[in-house]
């Protein structure tokens, strides 16, 4: 069995924001990076499926679209236990249709039994790349999965699809399939320091990006969101803040 996990290195915006001169993006100096939270659950789920099956032949491949700077996120997955990593060399796109188009030929070439994506990337919150990719791969798919029971012999899986309000839609899906993985499906393992060190040395295969086509959207302008009516700021010491909060609570609960 082979499982491909698509992972993204997400950008984390700190306490301050400045925009690039063309106002189409945030100045990269103000961004940190990490492995997308949802993708760590997806990677963990792939590892568990392999461990439960107990077959050494299983392979877990992580694939990411990005420039060299995204490799730390991929190495994080290698440190958790993924076998191989392929980076599709590309930068500048984030619309999910384009990303799916770039992923498709590389994932397809792996002929995977399962493809995992995260439900969403924490920086872009598009929740779209996986479903678009499934279409391009002509795979059955389920979005927002919180539990997977594989029936390899029957070539299907029973999965939980988590709806609004926590209602679960028990769904039977033909495999091979693409599933978008929701947080809470498991507890992702911590990579040991030794494994992290080792993963630094592992090769990452780099392949050229294919045809990207026309983007599904273009950013015209990025800006700090209007602050609503604006929160009234409670300042001063922690004791001052606590007193103000207690006062507001007392007033409102009257």
């Amino acid at each position: 069995m082979k499982i491909v996990v698509c992972v993204k290195q997400v950008a984390v915006l700190g306490d301050e924001v400045e925009f690039t001169d063309d106002a189409r993006d945030v100045d990269p100096d103000f961004l940190d990076a990490s492995l997308n939270e949802w993708d760590s659950y997806a990677t963990e789920e792939a590892l568990r499926i392999r461990e439960n099956a107990g077959s050494d032949g299983d392979e877990i491949v992580v694939v990411s679209v990005g420039d060299g700077d995204v490799e730390p996120a991929m190495r994080r997955c290698l440190a958790m236990g993924a076998d191989r990593a392929t980076r599709i060399d590309h930068s500048g796109s984030r619309d999910p249709i384009t990303i799916a188009r770039l992923l498709a030929p590389v994932v397809n070439a792996e002929s995977p039994d399962l493809v995992f994506c995260g439900v969403q990337s924490s920086d872009a919150v598009q929740a779209a790349t996986g479903t678009a990719l499934a279409e391009l791969l002509d795979l059955a798919r389920v979005a927002v999965v919180t539990r997977i029971e594989l029936d390899t012999g029957a070539r299907r899986a029973t999965v939980h699809r988590e709806l609004e309000g926590g209602l679960v839609d028990v769904t039977e899906v033909d495999t091979p399939a693409l599933l978008t993985i929701q947080t809470g499906i498991n507890q992702p393992r911590y990579a040991t320091l030794r494994a992290i060190k080792q993963a630094e040395q592992e090769p990452i295969q780099v392949v050229a990006a294919g045809e990207e086509g026309e983007p599904a959207y273009r950013v015209r302008r990025m800006f700090a969101p209007p602050k609503g009516e604006g929160a009234e700021l409670l300042d001063g010491s922690a004791a001052d803040i606590a007193r103000r909060i207690a006062g507001i609570v007392q007033e409102r609960l009257k």
Binding site: I97, A127, T131, A134, E135, V144, A216
Partner: peptide, 20 residues
């Protein structure tokens, strides 16, 4: 959650403009 399961697929297949 329902739309996440098919909307992006339609956009990818028909080459639509798309945002979520």
């Amino acid at each position: 959650v329902n739309s996440m399961g098919y909307g992006p697929a339609v956009a990818a297949k028909l080459d639509l403009g798309f945002a979520s």
